[in-house]
Nucleic acid binder design. Sequence first.
DNA 1: GCCGATCTTGTTATCGCTAACAATTACCGT
DNA 2: ACGGTAATTGTTAGCGATAACAAGATCGGC
Lengths: 337, 337
Amino acid sequence: MDVKAARSPAMTDVARLAGVSHQTVSRVLNDHPNVREQTRLRVRAAIAELGYRPNRAARALVTGRSQLIGIVAQNSTLYGPASLLAAFEQAAAEAGFAVSVGSVGRLDRESIAGAVERHLDQRVAGLVVIAPVKSADDALEDMPAGVPLVTIDGDPQRSHTLVTVDQVAGARAATEHLLAAGHRTVWHISGPVDWYDAAGRIEGWRGALQDAGAEVPPLMTADWSASSGFDAGRMLARMPEVTAVFAGNDHQALGLLRAFSEHGRRVPHDVSVVGFDDVPEAAFFIPPLTTVRPDFDAVAQAGLDLLLAQITDEAAPPNRIVIAPTLVQRASVAPPG
Amino acid sequence: MDVKAARSPAMTDVARLAGVSHQTVSRVLNDHPNVREQTRLRVRAAIAELGYRPNRAARALVTGRSQLIGIVAQNSTLYGPASLLAAFEQAAAEAGFAVSVGSVGRLDRESIAGAVERHLDQRVAGLVVIAPVKSADDALEDMPAGVPLVTIDGDPQRSHTLVTVDQVAGARAATEHLLAAGHRTVWHISGPVDWYDAAGRIEGWRGALQDAGAEVPPLMTADWSASSGFDAGRMLARMPEVTAVFAGNDHQALGLLRAFSEHGRRVPHDVSVVGFDDVPEAAFFIPPLTTVRPDFDAVAQAGLDLLLAQITDEAAPPNRIVIAPTLVQRASVAPPG
DNA sequence: GCCGATCTTGTTATCGCTAACAATTACCGT
DNA sequence: ACGGTAATTGTTAGCGATAACAAGATCGGC
């Protein structure tokens, strides 16, 4: 054993051991067709013996491509983004890509642009941006052309490749479900209106109400937190005519449930509530929450597929995929009093 | 404007424009001392004009160092890991490092080893592994020496550098708080016992009980889910002598709350409950949950600091940092009866 | 005004890999 | 057996940066 910190073996070391040229080693590594089986085995053996692993930096340098994809998301523990990130990494790993995360504190233009810059510095092969608000989307305008890009939850009007959850359909399903239970109308607590998610849910909610000829109550806006749901709930709780509420997400719904509970309004007996997201805990709210479940795995998979298509084929056209969510029925909905 | 997809400018392009050699550009980039101010400015201007950005792959190739650190965590939307990941990326970005995530579906040895391998392929400068169970820790045994490594929540008995939350102290605080409220003893629903987190919390709980001369009730083990908390709660709810429960985490506590609610046992009037984690929603449980809050930001910062120390100074000794959690008092604890 | 020390800049080699081309060997039909 | 094509392997030239050394410019002291 040599004492000095033997640098990790390079291709030429493998080549020497296998008695071939380094180019042949390269060919084996990249599964080129024209290598004799016997040679291939010899090289493989040498690779194993030395514990050789190719140097990605060198490869990236010469090919101009990295096997890295970047993902930009808000540094939040919001359930959606967190799920998305996890699903993404999983899918990317299967495709042989590593994922570099760039989380941002806020979704304003500078933060997003900064995170994008950092990724471009890394020479990522492609970029996924979770851009749920206009300012985030705007930051992508001055992206250098030629960088494969997929946005998640971005502006439906924008031209680049996009994957979204069908917010409108989800909200419509939730609202119609409440209407079908016999409620005369449905109130809605939305997320911040500059979020496309929120806008879509509002649109679906309003559409369902109008189609059913139901009155459209005033919209209550909040942020996505349980706290804001609680605040909204304290208002709604003192309005006896409110019998059904569609919350912008499950956390808001949790806040709502507590507000109703404190004011002695029983859910679902007095008021029905539907959420959005189906966080793992939703089934254990009091009462278990009926909610809309977006398929984050499907979103991630679709996003990655579109990105890889762009990476491998420069001419891939902009594309748009919309993932339909499903309504999960639990115990927070009942006919009105 | 040139039509062809002008490859991004390299150092020599900057050099030509500034009328210097590429080496001088390199010196400017790396803040070498001996560059005339005037030259420095000229180079800076050329860099800006061309929108030049250094090629990290080339730099990594020649220096043998990447500016990438890898983080291995379970692909879960558990609050702890998700928070940790976000905090980490934030801290790393500030230090000029990018973070590559490797999430694993399960924490068994193969999965972890695979994720570590993928990172080593990327030639990461250092590695952070969230290794809350023995199998994850074991996977790190055959890590090649010389790779800077920090474990989070790993085996306290292990020799490598480690950052953990002080589970024992947190659990002790929770238990003592319940005892102080007047409860004769405290039941505990733990996480899976092969998790160090769970083991530490059990130890703290048991220790506090013994120190107070209180009876130690049988331990109930569960996984970390709300569902398992609910199941445990259904048992506890029918035992009138149970007046205080310390849950392994907030999700379990949520399940508990619902189980008690269904059985007509009021919290905190009939039973007091304390959780662990302080998820953002904990304040909106019914009732608001008293819980133990670990400082994930501090964990991430400490972990990164230790990692960077190893990266810059090969001789950095193994280290261990324990972050003390704090008890957050809300409405789920009251005197018995 | 000259010499050595210091500051500033340039030249060359190199990291580990793939691409392009060149060279060798194997295989085929006639 | 022979020429020609196909299959296999080797050689050389970079990719874009840093490191090491060389060279030219500048400066102070005498």
